[in-house]
Each structure stands twice: as C-alpha cells, then as structure tokens.
C-alpha cells in the first residue's frame, strides 16, 4: 500500500481542501462525552479522546430511518437524502467494526441503504492512544490494513499516511504539495518505536484464545444465570457495539389514512421481545438465554464463521454497561466459572 509522509502542521490545510468533497465530521468532546460532530476544521476536534460513545456505524446505518413510503398502491423506496461525509479520526477498532458491518450488509443480498451511505462516506483513520479499557490487542484489531480511504499515524513531527483507496488518493492529489513520497530510515525507526509504545499501553487483562470451545463447554454453565441476575436488559451494549447490526422494522401510519412509512431502527437481542413469534412463543424468554446469545455471537459463532471474533476490542461495553457485564468480564467468568465482584 502507498504510504506518504505529511508534516503535522499541514493537517489543517489538508482537511480544509478535503471539505470540497463533503461535510467534515470528527470527534469532539463536550462535558466529558466524546461524539462525532460536524466541524469546520481540526481546531474543533479532540484527537486525543480514546473512544466516542456511539461508534461510527451510526453514519452508515442510522439509529432510525425510513426505508419505504407506502399507500394502498404499494411501497416506494426512500433513498437519496444522504449527504457526502468525510469522517476523520476513526481508530483501527472502528475501521475493523465497519469491515464486519460491510460483510453483513454488502455480501449476500446487498443492503441498498447501507451501500448508499458507505458510498457517500470517506473514512479517514487516525492512530490512537489506548486506555485501560482497550482490548484490541486481544482481538487482533489494534492495527488496520484495509477498510479506510486514508489512515494517519501520528509520529510526533510527522504523519505517515496510508492511502487505502482511489478516493483517498484523490484527496491527497487535491493537495499533493503537502505530501512526500520520500521516506527514510528515521521514519522506519520512528514507526517501529510507535508500535512498541502502543503495544505497551494496554492495561486490560484479557485473553480470548480458545473462546469457541469454552463457550461450547459452558453452554449450560450457571455463570450465565449469575450474570443474568445482574443484567438489566437495557440493551445499551448493543447500541454502543460497533458490530451490533440487529434492527427492527415497523410501519408508521398517518392517522386517518392508509399512507405511512416503513421504518427501520436499532434493536437489541437483550430485549425481551427480540425472539417472540406470532402467538406469543418466546424462543429466549430467559435473560440468561439472551445474554448468552449476545456473547456467543461475538466470541464463538462469528469465529466459527469468519475465523475472527465479532468483537473489535473497542472497550465501549466496558465503559457503558451499568452493571459491569462486558467482553472482558464475561470471558473471564466463563473461563474461571465464577462471576467476579
């Protein structure tokens, strides 16, 4: 892959020129909560923040949107009102999350709503500063080699810029004067040093090796019931997880007419109604069954299917779950057959 070098002080000028392509969005922090916001430039962004509360999936797959308008005659597709966006500051785990979403939404029956947003969004990654909740070293998502248009690795004075797509290359060419192809020995040394530094930052204790077997063995483990005692079925874990893709669909009717919209919105398998079928039978009426489904899907099933976990180690479940149920505590509880305090 093409790797270029850019002086750090040139980033604002680059982003300014990139805005010709579309709206610029980046991480901003307000009252200790980080979220992607539409920004004018670099000065408004918080590139030191470790994670946004909601992952960038919300741009490709909004929490709620209209799929069809309908009347008696039938259904008319609603598309086209999606702005062109540049997302700046995505971390490797975020990009790995989007790669998993791509697999789910773009392969075998392509989802046109996701595809349109993906097409109209440029992903510009940025290296990150791990904190004690980051688990990407255990999911092998601490670095990323594909999925982005550009990726900026911060090496103090310079950025090394990975060019991941033709569209990313177009952005570079708009300000070709800011980039250099001349990488030297020092750049390699600095990059090696950076990788060493990043790897040393992880504090979380988590090891996911052998998880598929441990899940299989622990299918009937009382650990699930103990965890279910604590779980509130609030579904926040699904909302903040970069790889949770489940959704529900409802028809909203204009009062007194037969016209309306067919809307799609985020759902969670932690919710009681998730597996209820007509007539009222619930395939997962016990909270323990629903918890097990969530974690089985992340740490066992996806590995069987795609050879890697559906967890990208972003740590959002760690920072969000009000009762401390997350990938780290669940995998530990299953291995030690004991729910930690």
């Amino acid at each position: 892959m093409m790797i270029l070098k850019m002086k750090k002080e040139d980033l604002p000028a680059f982003l300014e020129s990139a805005k010709q392509w579309g709206e610029l969005w980046g991480p901003t922090t307000k009252e200790e909560q980080t979220a992607y916001s539409k920004v004018d430039g670099l000065s408004q962004m918080d590139l030191k923040a470790t994670r946004t509360m909601i992952p960038p999936k919300k741009f490709l797959y909004p929490p709620r949107f209209t799929m069809f308008d309908f009347d008696e005659e039938g259904f008319v597709e609603r598309t086209g009102d999606v702005p062109k966006r540049i997302l700046f500051g995505l971390h490797p785990c975020d990009i790995h999350g989007i790669l998993i979403m791509d697999k789910l939404f773009l392969e075998t029956y392509k989802d046109p709503y996701y595809a349109e947003r993906r097409e109209k969004t440029l992903l510009l990654g940025h290296s990150c500063i791990p904190d004690d909740k980051c688990m990407c070293f255990a999911t092998n998502t601490d670095f990323v080699a594909e999925g982005f248009d550009l990726f900026f690795t911060d090496l103090k004075m310079f950025y090394l810029v990975w060019v991941g797509s033709s569209r990313g290359h177009d952005l570079v060419r708009m300000r070709a004067d800011l980039f250099s192809r001349n990488l030297d020995k020092n750049d390699i040394l600095n990059y090696t040093e950076y990788r060493k530094w990043k790897t040393a930052q992880f504090k979380a204790k988590i090891d996911l090796t052998g998880m598929p077997d441990i899940f299989e063995l622990g299918y009937n483990s009382p650990v699930w019931d103990e965890l279910a005692e604590k779980c509130l079925s609030c579904g926040q874990c699904s909302m903040v997880c970069p790889t949770c893709n489940c959704y529900n669909v409802v028809d909203e009717v204009e009062l007194g007419t037969v016209e309306g919209t067919r809307d799609r919105f985020w759902d969670s398998c932690m919710f009681r109604e998730y597996s209820v079928v007509a007539g009222g039978h619930n395939f997962r009426d016990k909270r323990a069954d629903r918890l097990r489904l969530w974690y089985t899907h992340k740490l066992q099933a996806f590995i069987g299917e795609f050879g890697k976990p559906a967890c990208v180690g972003c740590g959002r479940c760690v920072s969000t779950c009000p009762v401390d149920i997350n990938v780290a505590t669940v995998s530990k509880a299953l291995k030690e057959q004991e729910v930690g305090k």
């Binding site: 075998t108 959704y247 669909v249 759902d267 066992q300 099933a301 069987g304």
Partner: peptide
C-alpha cells in the same frame, strides 16, 4: 428474510 436484521440467529 435476508440475513441482516439478526432476529432469527441461532449461533452462527
């Protein structure tokens, strides 16, 4: 019906 909404998932 096309493997997107997740509701009918059984393991993988």
């Amino acid at each position: 019906g096309v493997g997107k909404c997740g509701h009918c998932a059984i393991e993988y």
